[in-house]
Design a protein around this nucleic acid. Sequence first.
DNA 1: ATAATTCTTGACCGGTTTTCTCGGGTATCA
DNA 2: TGATACCCGAGAAAACCGGTCAAGAATTAT
Lengths: 157, 157
Amino acid sequence: MRLSTKGRYAVMAMVDLANTSQGSPVALADIAERQEISLSYLEQLFAKLRKGGLVKSVRGPGGGYLLAFPSDVTRISDIILAVDEPIHTTRCAAGSPAGCRTNRSRCLTHDLWEELGNQIHLYLSSVTIADVVHRRVLGTSGLVLRSPAKASAVAAE
Amino acid sequence: MRLSTKGRYAVMAMVDLANTSQGSPVALADIAERQEISLSYLEQLFAKLRKGGLVKSVRGPGGGYLLAFPSDVTRISDIILAVDEPIHTTRCAAGSPAGCRTNRSRCLTHDLWEELGNQIHLYLSSVTIADVVHRRVLGTSGLVLRSPAKASAVAAE
DNA sequence: ATAATTCTTGACCGGTTTTCTCGGGTATCA
DNA sequence: TGATACCCGAGAAAACCGGTCAAGAATTAT
């Protein structure tokens, strides 16, 4: 799961769309103005969102985009996965987990990155567009560690 | 909290260092070879790690680097913070939260990114170098949501 | 019909950031 | 004094980001 500004823009736009649309299509130009994102760039993002099945488009005058699902169904992770092609965090991951095994201590960190990816995905999967619109994003320490090792040390930052 | 290859390299190197060193200094050239990272680049990373107080250096023949603390004390988040200068994820965050308030629906996503950063930091703070060396990284779903909204939907990826 | 509106698609580009290299230092030890 | 290994700053190479441009297709209003 990649985290770039592209993904952030897409989420901002989708939240804006959910927040603005009352069942009727919203033109990209409107979203572009409100969110201060260039129209051409938004077009690229929504092309991917449409391919991902997250929005529907309505052409012609009065047209625009609509959410394909109610805002409490689409999760933030869906949006980011739709616009940001995945990244290889482990250097050995996809193609050849072989090189991982041959070199003894090489990929000690492999599990770490994989698990971190899981954590991020888990969090972004727990938040829907509706949650963001209604500011229902969990406050700090919304998550609880199963084994709270050194939980106190966290504050030391 | 930023997540780049630079941070990953630093973590790989620190884990290798912890795994190799038996109290005696480890030369960067050795780490560079094992982890397949260029020596010159490693030198840059360790310069920052040294400034951050995470490692000690020993010059001259037989010299190298040593962990400044036992491996179960240094957390992964410490390493990443030492080498990757922080980033502004929200575009309005640091300098002027003003622009955030004036534009009504502009920064609905602000809280989301902030909270995501917290989640990542929280996880990386819960893992120490020793945890990685001994493969004590939590398996999937090591975290439990306080309010498990749509927990089932996560599997649908 | 036809014109206006809006999405659709794909190629391309300049600037910034990130990653990495190079070359020369400096401390330390045999 | 020479070999080892850290130390440091200037840049080159590559990737990425945010954006532009242009041509086209579908739909609706007139």
